[in-house]
Nucleic acid binder design. Structure first.
Length: 398
DNA sequence: AACACGGGGTG
DNA sequence: CACCCAGTGTT
């Protein structure tokens, strides 16, 4: 293990050479991005939160819409949560936008509705950690603060052969130290953004374009022919598999039964079709029956089919509707399956389609509603639920 | 220190 | 399909 003592030290001349080469490259190649049009701290903040774990091309349309919907910190502080989630729909890590609203409210209460202009106050805000505080401080306020993200760790680990595990939070300080030693005091914001652009486009994780890299002669890892050994990163944890039956249930008006998810945890407060968890064994049995059914494409309804066998899907429908009236739903057909990989788990969903026969005495749960599909665009659905909607629309178009 | 938290890309 | 990309908050 390399410790900070073992890491190569550059002379002042080498540091100056690195700054000059990096900034010259940035002046020529910098990407023209909407949040680079000016130094408005609010726009910088929004872009930096969106860019966490998310690529630039994905962020651009979200950024424009967000600034339209919430033009000021005050607008964000007062926004309706459903609209907030809709603004973030599909971006992932939805706590980011909830934390932003909390921070906006703090700014209205404590900072005169402005972004604070120093690292200490920035760090006191929800959702702003060491990286984002450094990014805002340097880009919006010209402070020579490090903003160490994955790109920066990749570039510096290759420059200095830093062998510390970048997944370990302890390592961040080593990289921050090296950035402090090298950062341009004249143009700290450009310096940090140049590092991130370089990591994103040239000094990439695989197949780095070393021949066109403005820092190509400075990488110690390259001198040692070990460029792609860096950065050092330990293995990620294995994903957990979860199995569900997904339920598309329509009433006579053509509305669908939807549920709002719990206020905490995965995909909090977002909308979903009812999901009933089943164990792997039952899921696989069901999947097998399902495929047999789809191959047949006979007159038989899934209701008949399931009723004769496990009754699992029917039971799930009854559970979702909180009723024991066994003839309340007529299961028309299977819609297909949806698979979705999260960072730490994988969902397997078999989606069934049912029609409600009687609805008068039916009690919905607190978090359930009948929703006209015309209103789907107004609700925030996570990706797996968007995939389910696609299956439903396929069926409607047949 | 370990885990929770989405979604996208490449080969 | 396997594999890569990773900041912040909570416990």
């Amino acid at each position: 293990m390399t410790t900070s003592k073992d890491i190569i030290e550059w002379t002042e001349e080498q540091k100056q050479e690195m700054r000059d080469k990096l900034l010259a490259w940035y002046d020529k190649e910098k990407r023209l991005l909407p949040w680079r049009e000016n130094k408005d701290p609010y726009r910088i903040w929004v872009s930096e939160i969106m860019l966490q774990q998310t690529q630039v091309v994905t962020v651009i349309p979200y950024f424009h819409r967000f600034m339209e919907w919430f033009p000021t910190i005050k607008d964000l502080a007062e926004a309706d949560e459903d609209k907030l989630l809709k603004a973030w729909e599909g971006l992932g890590y939805y706590s980011r936008v909830r934390n932003m609203q909390s921070a906006a409210q703090t700014m209205v209460e404590k900072f005169d509705g402005q972004m604070p202009n120093n690292v200490k106050d920035l760090l006191s805000l929800k959702g702003i950690g060491p990286y984002t505080a450094g990014a805002i401080a340097s880009i919006a306020f010209d402070l020579p603060e490090p903003a160490v993200d994955g790109n920066v760790m990749r570039v510096y680990s290759r420059l200095f052969c830093i062998e510390d595990d970048i997944a370990d939070p302890k390592s961040r300080k080593i990289f921050e130290q090296k950035v402090r030693e090298t950062i341009s005091h004249e143009r700290p914001g450009d310096f940090n953004q140049a590092l991130m652009d370089l990591g994103a486009t040239i000094c990439t994780p695989t197949s780095p374009k070393i021949e066109i890299d403005p820092l190509r002669d400075l990488y110690e890892a390259h001198k040692q022919n070990r460029l792609e050994e860096f950065p050092v990163k330990k293995k990620k944890v294995k994903t957990v598999h979860l199995y569900y039956l997904g339920l598309s249930i329509q009433n006579k008006k053509g509305e669908y039964l939807l549920e709002k998810r719990l206020a905490e945890g995965l995909l909090a407060n977002m909308w979903t079709f009812p999901l009933v968890e089943v164990d792997k064994k039952h899921y696989q049995e069901m999947e097998k029956e399902w495929l047999g059914y789809q191959e047949d494409q006979k007159e038989t309804t899934l209701f008949d089919f399931v009723a004769e066998d496990s009754g699992l899907m029917k039971g799930a429908f009854l559970e979702a509707l909180e009723t024991s009236q066994s003839d309340v739903v007529w299961l028309k057909q299977p819609l297909g399956d949806v698979k979705h990989v999260f960072s730490h788990r994988k969902w397997h969903i078999l989606l069934g389609n049912g029609f409600l026969k009687e609805e008068t005495e039916l009690m919905l749960k607190e978090n359930q509603s009948w929703v006209d599909p015309k209103d789907f665009p107004n609700l925030a659905f996570p990706k797996p639920q968007q995939k389910m909607i696609s299956l439903i629309e396929e069926l409607r178009n047949k």
